[in-house]
């Protein structure tokens, strides 16, 4: 939909503004790529580096990966496991909770939604510190499972709002029909509703996966000894001043997430977040 009167003559200006904006948006990512692939003397080791390097090499990446492979591998695996647990748990808890919400009287469901919404306001740090003490006692400190359980908090409300949106878009009579056809409560939930809601559930899984993959605050407090990728990057760039490695690892972190973002662009919409957060 167009929100303002469209003057055909101004299209050219819109295009030019959009182009300039795109270039500005893309430059930082471009910088990451050239630092990873150009010879260091033309990037981080140059006093005034040029945006257009001339000599390229793969040795930056190879050094970073080979010299460091076991730590990198461990971080990669930890990030992968954590994100997958977070995504799976979000899809599971989120789907059931959303369905339950859709079946409750409005007054109760909006109360529950307010509680969920309220939980998103609590800072991760405020939660992470006391949890770290409890996790230490429970043996979950520094484990992928423990970290995933904490990160789940960040994604769960959003997941529920997202899947609720999907469920609301399903035709209501389908479910009634399933009951008439003899399906019980859970049969209709799993054999009729779930397949129909699958796109939304998958999107919620991927978005949760991605948020965990990116998550920093819980990770640095709850899993500092065997870090995830974001923490490894932080340690390299800041603590160890190892910019080349940090950039190389950044590339690894970024690629899957960019792919997911593009796959999900249909779902990452303002009104999704809006519908959830207006409560």
């Amino acid at each position: 939909m167009v929100s303002e009167y469209n003057n055909p003559g101004s299209h050219k200006y819109f295009f030019i503004i959009a182009l300039v904006f795109s270039i500005i948006v893309l430059i930082p990512m471009y910088v990451l790529v050239i630092i990873a692939f150009a010879v260091p003397s033309q990037t981080i080791a140059a006093y005034y580096p040029s945006l257009i390097p001339t000599k390229f090499t793969l040795s930056n990446l190879m050094h970073a990966f080979s010299g460091y492979s076991s730590i990198l591998e461990a971080a990669f695996i930890k990030s992968l496991i954590t994100a997958t647990i977070v995504g799976a748990l979000a899809a599971f808890l989120g789907f059931h909770a959303s369905y339950g919400l859709s079946k409750l009287p409005v007054r109760l469901s909006s109360l529950i939604i307010s509680v969920l919404f309220f939980s998103t306001m609590i800072p991760s740090l405020t939660i992470a510190i006391p949890i770290s003490v409890s996790f230490l006692k429970a043996g979950l400190y520094d484990s992928a499972l423990g970290l995933a359980l904490a990160q789940e908090l960040v994604v769960l409300p959003m997941t529920i709002f997202m899947i609720t949106g999907t469920l609301q878009s399903l035709p209501k009579q389908i479910e009634l029909q399933a009951r008439v056809d003899g399906a019980g409560f859970f049969q209709s939930l799993y054999s009729v509703i779930f397949p129909l809601a699958l796109p939304g559930v998958l999107a919620a899984f991927l978005l949760s996966w991605m948020m965990s993959w990116d998550e920093f605050t819980f990770a640095i407090i709850l899993s500092p000894v065997h870090p995830t990728l974001p923490i490894l990057i932080y340690l390299d760039s800041t603590a160890r001043g190892n910019i080349l490695y940090a950039s190389a690892f950044s590339l690894i972190v970024t690629i899957p997430v960019i792919l997911i973002t593009m796959a999900l662009s249909k779902f990452i919409k303002g009104n999704y977040m809006a519908s959830g957060l207006t409560g």
């Binding site: 009579q173 029909q177 009951r179 056809d181 003899g182 019980g184």
Partner: peptide, 20 residues
Amino acid sequence: LPPNKRNLAMVFQNYALYPN
């Protein structure tokens, strides 16, 4: 009794066919 215990069949206004 819930619908699955009544052994009736129903055809809805818009047929409610399972789209998947």
